[in-house]
Nucleic acid binder design. Structure first.
Length: 573
RNA sequence: CGGAGCGUAGCUCAGCCCGGUAGAGCACUUGCUUUGGGAGCAAGACGUCGCAGGUUCAACUCCUGUCGCUCCGACCA
């Protein structure tokens, strides 16, 4: 490609609506342009990168034995109703109507479609295992699209779905994808690491997310430096809080005391009360599918909503309003408690495991301006469910190694998930086993955000001058930069010769034939991030040399006649 | 949806508080000079100041509404 024939609209300044580095660079390097919030056009160079990422994914999926298909983005709502997700996923579903006013949904994911397909095509245990994948555009009515390609209304995903006869076989399919993902991200030139992930409403314990460490990521990952444990904070557990929960009795019965104006854990921890956070029981009230539920946490702990969803089995919940709470409890937030004798109505109580056996605790008295002390949870509170609901904190000890845990931000680029039979049962994807008994297929699903991965590469690989593409996904691997471009000039002759030779060898090469000052051409090639630049100027040419510049590396002279071989070696041809 | 902010030239922004002639830099066009790290000079083209109402002799500026965008929170690849 000749630069003058390409469209590479680089920008000196960052557009005002880009916040994070990778988003700014996507725009500045002319890789994407925004049409509207969460909707982007891939420019010629951006599309080249996207295609290369796709190709790596395709090769690794094929290698893992998955079969490529292409499913419709436009889907009938009936299959979504069959799995119940027409309701549970309604917030992200885009819906459209055809001329007959019939409704359709734009696929945010394809479990329903692939399972419908499998229901028709897979009838025998002999046909499994099978794994189908596609690379396709998804539509999600995101609550808040942001950071360019990171979270978009429309994005490209590789989604794969495995079908197996047994749990054990499904585990094998899962492992294959896990391994393929590791290779994919490695080939894309980014550091990624798998972490245990929350399984949400589906449940089960087999789910991993592939994370790329980045301060701008939207996830918190809890990890042990030994490398033996890493989990999304939504899922993470530890040996427990650093301060032990009090277990010593302080009184034979609860005692009410006045706490005028005290409505926070912090306020109760100060003079004149001096009740530390870990000596308090925090009482939260949620509305789960229209019914009130009480959640008890230790005062210094945070409720992990993802864990809570796993326990209640639905994501249809919200914090109760102050009015709803007052109606049921007779007090306002800040004075709430679940002590039996002070309860006005029957409300199920979930208590965090950390509170088990707690004695000498302080909690709200269900009366504004009063608290109870000497609370012993098993004696004074009717707990219906003991569950793990707390959010892990930095410095708590790792369950696996006993070392202190750390937390860092990361971008989720992939997710592997063992689904079980939720979808196969709902959509009747059954097979006959050896003994002729019909059973639902055991499924797994595996996603990679292709467009997000592309941005994650930039987020991880950049410097003050621009993007630093790895060879494997660079829009062009080599940029030839003659400093004089007059036809027939010595620099241009050498440039043309090298360009022709590299092109003939199948190297992705761009010739910067613009009649611009050297500074402009250098800046642009570094901003866009071509991994290899061959500079051709009259000074070095006089010595029979050209200049090799690796992006992010030093300028090194190279004998003119060695240039071709050196570049071929660098790009691995 | 809750909270915060921003909409003025292709891009980055000033002007608005205190109403009266639409501005700068970059990019673009033409010419001359320059030519190893985002050049200089000169000339030029580019705007219904997001949109709709209102106040006013007069609105980019004040008021109301509305739409869009960005950021923080809940959602996810």
């Amino acid at each position: 490609m000749r630069w003058t024939n390409a469209l590479i609209p680089t920008l000196k300044e960052s557009p005002a609506d880009a916040e994070i580095t990778s988003h700014k660079l996507l725009l500045r390097a002319g890789l994407i342009r925004k049409l509207a919030g969460g909707l982007y056009t891939f420019m010629p160079l951006g599309l080249r990168v996207l295609r290369k990422v796709e190709q790596i994914v395709r090769e690794e999926m094929d290698r893992a034995g998955a079969l490529e298909v292409l499913m419709p983005a436009l889907q009938p709502p009936e299959i979504w109703q069959a799995t119940g997700r027409y309701e549970t996923a309604r917030d992200v579903l885009f819906k459209v109507r055809d001329r007959a006013k019939k409704e359709w949904v734009l696929g945010p994911t394809h479990e329903e479609v692939i399972t419908t397909l499998a229901a028709g095509e897979i009838n025998s245990y002999r046909q499994m295992p099978k794994n189908f994948y596609q690379i396709q555009v998804k539509f999600r009515d995101e609550i808040r699209p942001r950071f360019g390609l990171m979270r978009a209304k429309e994005f490209i995903m590789k989604d794969a779905y495995s079908f197996d006869a047994t749990d054990e076989a499904a585990q094998l399919s899962y492992q294959k994808m896990y391994d393929a993902y590791t290779r994919i991200f490695e080939r894309c030139g980014i550091q990624s690491f798998p972490v245990e992930a929350d399984t949400g409403v589906i449940g089960g314990k087999f789910s991993h997310e592939f994370m790329v460490p980045a301060e701008t990521g939207e996830n918190d990952v809890v990890y042990c430096e030994s490398g033996k444990y890493a989990a999304n904070i939504e899922k993470a557990s530890s040996q427990g809080p650093l301060a032990a929960t009090p277990k010593e009795s302080t009184g034979a019965a609860v005692e009410k005391f006045a706490t005028p104006g005290v409505v926070t854990i912090e306020a109760l921890a100060k003079e004149p009360y001096n009740v530390a956070g870990h000596q308090q029981i925090k009482t939260l009230v949620y509305l789960v599918q229209g019914k009130l539920v009480i959640v008890l946490m230790r005062g210094d702990d945070q409720l992990n909503e993802a864990k809570f969803v796993g326990q209640i089995g639905t994501n249809e919940f919200r914090a109760a309003t102050a009015d709803e709470i007052f109606g049921a409890m007779g007090a306002r937030p800040g004075s709430l408690g679940a002590v039996k004798t002070a309860m006005k109505s029957e409300i199920p109580v979930y208590a965090d495991e950390v509170l088990r056996g707690a004695k000498g605790m302080t909690t709200g008295a269900n009366e504004d301006g009063f608290h109870f002390r000497h609370v012993e949870i098993e004696r004074d509170i009717e707990v219906n469910y003991w569950v793990d609901l707390r959010t892990v904190k930095v410095g708590e000890f790792c369950v696996a190694t006993g070392l202190p845990l750390k937390i860092r931000r990361a971008i989720e680029v992939g997710h592997v998930f063992k689904l079980g039979t939720k979808y196969s049962e709902a959509l009747k994807a059954t097979y006959l086993d050896e003994s002729g008994v019909a059973k639902p297929c055991v499924m797994g699903c595996y996603g990679i955000g292709i467009t997000r991965t592309m941005q994650a590469i930039i987020e991880q690989r950049n410097d003050k001058d621009g993007i630093i593409w790895p060879i494997a996904v660079a829009p062009y691997q080599v940029c030839i930069t003659p400093l004089g471009v007059a036809p027939g000039s010595p620099t241009m002759l050498v440039a043309e010769e090298l360009y022709a030779a590299l092109s003939a060898k199948g190297v992705d090469v761009i010739l910067d034939d613009r009649d611009d000052r050297p500074g402009v051409k250098f800046k642009d090639s570094e901003l866009v991030g071509f991994p290899i630049r061959i500079g051709i100027g009259e000074k070095s040419l006089a010595k029979g040399e050209v200049e090799l510049k690796l992006r992010g590396g030093e300028l090194t002279p190279l004998k003119k006649e060695d240039a071709l071989a050196k570049v071929l070696e660098l790009v691995g041809k």
